[in-house]
Design a protein around this nucleic acid. Structure first.
Lengths: 222, 222
DNA sequence: GTAAATTTTGACCGAAAGGTCAAAGGCACG
DNA sequence: CGTGCCTTTGACCTTTCGGTCAAAATTTAC
């Protein structure tokens, strides 16, 4: 995925003026700090209100910066959003990538479920950021879904299918098996408000883990 | 849930002037037509962009009305949204209400799954309207979630628990069983773009139905 | 310590958004 | 066929929003 870093002020810096070639001068400590600050604030805001529902002022406010100052680091609201999705999309799929074709089938899948649930527990805002984006038609990441994501899923679905053919796990639809893992685990992050409105209990994720491990154990048993 | 119908023009109509009591004059045919038109358009727009991401102009445009004309029927953007959620919340829970304590346990649950999936297939926009609202913290329906919804879920969870105690279905966490049905079925509506990006196939819902029936059959088997 | 570069800010701009209003255009009914 | 209510509209108002800019403040590099 394309990394978005056209810093206005960096394109007219001394490196360019002196050498004529546009080799990006390295980030200053302030730049690094503030970009992280902004992305953190943007995650908070975008995940709560969606792209169109969020304002630059909200993000700047959350980050403790003035609006023009924020726009000094990112050229537009779009750019912040893109940078966030960009950074996230990669790490978000790590649990699925970790599914090992050489491992013990049932354990691999149960591990995947566990890791994915852990992602919901640790990074609910990230989960909601994606959820918001996808519910609203994924205008900014459709390409990635049809490209990278689809390729990865197809690859892993093939692994699952092999396991089924080999009689290591029960026959089901491999793609829908993956969908089911996503939906079940992400539900606890994306619909957290609803879950907590109904089930007022501290350790929701512990209950969920027990429930899901049992569910998939039963589903996969040959 | 409170019904929202303070039509500015109806509060100063002749019925009031003549009798002194505020008995709402019945809706004209034009009012009925246009209100439906507006709610339909609003569903389309709100479900695509969320509340804050949608504009009155978009809705008016979609409905083929001018903005002031739309605001003649509903006093504000808020009011349209409230009316939509209001009407929907009720019917959305019908499948769960239909779960019959006297029925055959496994069949009842499998039917519920089927009905819920059918809702996703027939009313994906309604599903996304809720999803948008809940992901963004459910600011407008939190009360309903903690009230009506929770009561209904608790009631049905008790039924499930009875079935488990009686050995009619396998032991699991009843609340999470309900959550799992919601998440699995709604996923196909809410994340439709993602599902279709990965699985380019016409009859996704047929596949899903087969998959889910199998999943819950296995989960519930004693 | 000073010159150059980086960072921050207040003032400002044009467009879009939610909503109002008065007046005009229809419609229904005696 | 005219009177009174219902419906529609264009013009307008205020606030919010995304973004710019020039100048001031601060850091960095020598």
């Amino acid at each position: 995925m394309r990394i978005v870093t056209w810093n206005k002020h960096l394109t007219r810096n001394s490196a360019v003026a002196k050498s004529g070639t546009a080799q990006p001068r390295q980030e200053t400590r302030i730049q690094k700090k503030n970009k992280e600050l902004i992305l953190g604030a943007a995650l908070e805001v975008f995940s709560s209100y969606g792209f169109r529902g969020s304002t630059i002022d909200q993000i700047a406010n959350q980050a403790g910066l003035s609006k023009p100052n924020l726009l000094y680091y990112f050229p537009s609201k779009e750019a912040i959003h893109a940078a966030l999705l960009d950074a996230l999309l990669d790490t978000w799929l790590d649990p699925l990538r970790a599914l090992d074709p050489e491992g013990e089938p049932v354990a691999e899948i149960l591990d995947y479920v566990h890791r994915k649930l852990e992602m919901s527990r640790m990074y609910p805002r990230e989960s909601r950021l994606f959820a918001n984006e996808i519910i609203q038609g994924a205008p900014r990441i459709l390409e990635n879904l049809e490209g990278e994501l689809r390729a990865l899923v197809d690859e892993k679905a093939a692994v699952l299918e092999d396991w089924m053919t080999a009689g290591k796990i029960a026959q089901t639809h491999p793609h829908h098996l993956i969908f089911s893992i996503w939906s079940l685990t992400q539900h606890y992050a994306d619909f957290e408000v609803q879950v907590r409105a109904i089930r007022t209990k501290q350790d929701i994720y512990e209950e969920a883990d027990t429930f899901l491990q049992n569910l998939f154990t039963r589903l996969l048993k040959v």
